[in-house]
C-alpha cells in the first residue's frame, strides 16, 4: 500500500465515479426487481395453483443460481441465441455489459424480493383485509390499496437488507468490465501497479455507503410507524352511561 496514492485526488475522483455506477446499478436493479418481485409475490399468494407454482419455480431457480453464473450465462451465453442478437432486447440489454448486469441483478433481486413481499402479504392481519371487503371494495382495490401498502411496510427492513446485499453483489459487474466501484479501483490499480491501495479506498466507500443505507432504512422504518401519542390512551370523551 502506498500513502501517496491513497491521498491522491486522482484515485478518489476515479473511484467516486465508480461509486456512481455502483449506486446506479443498485437503484435500477432494486427498482426493476421490486416491480417483478411484487408481481411474483401476488401471483404466489393470489394466483391459481398453476400460476403460483410457476412463480415458485422462478423464485427457486433464481435464488439457486449464483449471481456470477447468471451473469456469465446472460453475458456470454445468451448472445449465442440468434433472436437475442437483434432488436430492442439486444440494444438495451445484451449488447452492453451494463445492461446485462442490470438484467441479471434485477432477475436475481426479483426472486429474493418476491419472498420478502410474500412474507409481508402473509403478515397483513386478516381483519384489515376483511374490513376492505366489508365496505364494498373490489378485490383489486383491497389488494392495491390495503394489502400491498401494509405488506410493503411489513417487509421494509427486508427490502433494506436486500438493498445492502445488492450494493455488495453489484461488485460482480466488475468481472464483465463494468467500471463500478470495484471495477474502477482495479482499473486504477492496474495503472499504478498497486492493487491494494485502490481496493482499500473502495472498501472505505462501500462501508460508508452501506452505513448510509442502513441508517436511511432505519429512519424510514421509524417514520412509517407512528409512535403512540402521549395521552392518547388516557383521553376520555364524555360518556353516556348505557349499561346499568
Amino acid at each position: 500500500m502506498s500513502e501517496s496514492l491513497f491521498f491522491s485526488t486522482t484515485l478518489w475522483f476515479s473511484i467516486l465515479r465508480g461509486l456512481q455506477i455502483t449506486i446506479l446499478l443498485t437503484v435500477l436493479s432494486m427498482a426493476f426487481g421490486l416491480i417483478l418481485g411484487t408481481a411474483l409475490a401476488l401471483v404466489r399468494v393470489y394466483g391459481s395453483a398453476l400460476a403460483s407454482s410457476v412463480a415458485a419455480t422462478y423464485i427457486f431457480v433464481f435464488r439457486g443460481i449464483p449471481l456470477l453464473i447468471l451473469l456469465y450465462f446472460l453475458y456470454y451465453g445468451a448472445p449465442q441465441i440468434s433472436f437475442l442478437r437483434t432488436g430492442l432486447l439486444w440494444d438495451v440489454l445484451f449488447s452492453s455489459a451494463f445492461g446485462t448486469c442490470i438484467l441479471a441483478f434485477s432477475l436475481n433481486n426479483a426472486a429474493y424480493l418476491a419472498e420478502a413481499v410474500r412474507g409481508g402479504i402473509l403478515t397483513v392481519k386478516k381483519g384489515q383485509i376483511e374490513a376492505g371487503f366489508a365496505i364494498g371494495l373490489t378485490t383489486r382495490k383491497v389488494i392495491s390499496r390495503i394489502t400491498l401498502p401494509i405488506a410493503m411496510r411489513n417487509c421494509l427492513s427486508q427490502i433494506g437488507n436486500e438493498t445492502i446485499f445488492t450494493i455488495k453483489a453489484s461488485s460482480i459487474a466488475s468481472i464483465v468490465t463494468v467500471r463500478d466501484l470495484l471495477g474502477q479501483a482495479q482499473y486504477v490499480g492496474n495503472i499504478y501497479y498497486d492493487n491494494i491501495t485502490p481496493l482499500l479506498a473502495a472498501a472505505i466507500l462501500y462501508l460508508v455507503l452501506v452505513q448510509i443505507v442502513e441508517r436511511l432504512i432505519r429512519w424510514a422504518d421509524r417514520a412509517l410507524k407512528p409512535a403512540p401519542l402521549a395521552g392518547a390512551k388516557g383521553k376520555r370523551p364524555n360518556q353516556l352511561q348505557v349499561v346499568s
Binding site: 450465462f73 456470454y76 449465442q80
Partner: peptide
C-alpha cells in the same frame, strides 16, 4: 464456474457450458 468458463472458451459454446453450471447449482439448491 471456472471450469464452465474454460470450456466455454475452448468450445465456443458458452451457452451450453454455462447452462451445465446452472444445472449443477440448481441440483445443489
Amino acid at each position: 464456474t471456472r471450469r464452465a468458463k474454460i470450456v466455454a472458451g475452448s468450445t465456443r459454446e458458452p451457452f451450453a457450458a454455462y447452462a451445465v453450471a446452472v444445472v449443477c447449482f440448481l441440483v445443489i439448491a
